[in-house]
Amino acid sequence: MLNLTIIIVAVCICIALILNLWRLLQGPSISDRILALDTMYINAIALILLYGIYIKSALYFEAAVLIAMLGFVSTAALCKYLLRGDIIE
């Protein structure tokens, strides 16, 4: 039962990632693209944790933490750059 659920949820997340990718490529304004990128990070974390459950390993937690942190920092940096023309003032 668990394996079937994992596959269903993985398909859900992959569809979500494709929708994000569509918005990333399509996005009329640059803020749309940043938002799509931010959402892709969150979906990627979910996918990695799911893979960790699937192969019964705890190693993937570190990868998820790293993606969470880098995702936030890169979103903040991109926004800051567009707002002020400089990342570190």
């Binding site: 039962m1 668990l2 659920t5 994992i6 269903i8 949820v9 859900c12 997340i13 569809i15 979500a16 990632l17 929708l19 994000n20 569509w22 918005r23 938002l35 799509a36 959402t39 969150i42 979906n43 979910a46 799911l50 459950i53």
Partner: peptide, 20 residues
């Protein structure tokens, strides 16, 4: 575990669907 995974997957999908 299955129920919370399914809830999580559904909400992630809805979030991205809303984005589009």
């Amino acid at each position: 575990i299955c129920v919370s995974l399914l809830i999580g997957g559904a909400f992630l999908l809805i979030g991205s669907y809303g984005l589009v």
